[in-house]
Design a protein around this nucleic acid. Sequence first.
DNA 1: AATAATATGTGCGTAGCGCACATATTTGGT
DNA 2: ACCAAATATGTGCGCTACGCACATATTATT
Lengths: 169, 169
Amino acid sequence: MDTGIANLLGALSLAVMDRIEQGARDVVGRGGETPAALIVIGYGRGMTNDKLRRILDLSHSGTVRLVDRLVTDGLVERRPGKDGREVALHLTTKGAASRKELLASRISAVASLLDVLSPAETKRLGTLIHDLLARQDTSEMDRFTICRMCDDQCCSNCPLPTSKGKGDR
Amino acid sequence: MDTGIANLLGALSLAVMDRIEQGARDVVGRGGETPAALIVIGYGRGMTNDKLRRILDLSHSGTVRLVDRLVTDGLVERRPGKDGREVALHLTTKGAASRKELLASRISAVASLLDVLSPAETKRLGTLIHDLLARQDTSEMDRFTICRMCDDQCCSNCPLPTSKGKGDR
DNA sequence: AATAATATGTGCGTAGCGCACATATTTGGT
DNA sequence: ACCAAATATGTGCGCTACGCACATATTATT
């Protein structure tokens, strides 16, 4: 039955995210979208509060407070953006280190589940997931949202389709 | 590279859980572990506060308050347990209906991502995920935790190994 | 019977978030 | 050049979901 496979993927995804979130909390001491924010701020220059808000799918005020927490923790700096309204978000040295640790923790968490498969099985699984993601109908923003925890290398080789006709800027 | 596949599975899992959680919130009007609690209470008779706590991996007080919310919402009843200390948690009619809707929402959310694959690909993916889960080293409690959002049919045909030597009670 | 273990409930605080509102800057129409 | 709309940020306030420490009731152990 088809729903049986959906159920399996749901269970696996839950197990994966439980482990990722636990590791992330251990690394940055915060939960919710805060770890994702650290990663997102790190991978794009010129990240602003408002772009971040859309990627994390939070309210505006929620995003401001999230950045407040990152600033309090010494992980992020608010600098003046080129557009006088914008705030340019930059990682501090400490923030960049935490981000790196966070990404490593995430990969390690997933890999620990994955390593019961043989190399051949792993490769087949990778191909299937790649195709599954590549065929999704995603907007530019969906893509950033799905990849908000991705390791940098991911988005240099990202299977998610770039929807043309919606220029980023 | 192996970490590339871990990254893909991480991204997919995030996308899957985003959709499941959004749907769950739409159905029950609550977030966090509350939807999972509704499912867990529904699939085992004799569910107690303490068993629930361990399955959801929450603190004791967090679990009590979670059940408070479910009772307030008219989804769950506290009945006297056979052991005079225990509270037996039971779904109300409304609770059972919400639970059913919740499970359907979850399957639908996952299926909407999955349906870009051909039947053959879907089947291969199902086999891989099944094996991946079946080979995990899970305790009895891990198993309940991973399956805390599972549709009933899952755990009648669950790939997760039952660790013998750790009796349930 | 006394002590420990088990199970639940409560006071209190915190993290993470949303809504409504206020403010500053830029853009666009006239 | 001017004024309205759009854009981007920050703030007051409240709520949900949760944890810690403590209190209480019941059962198990010795």
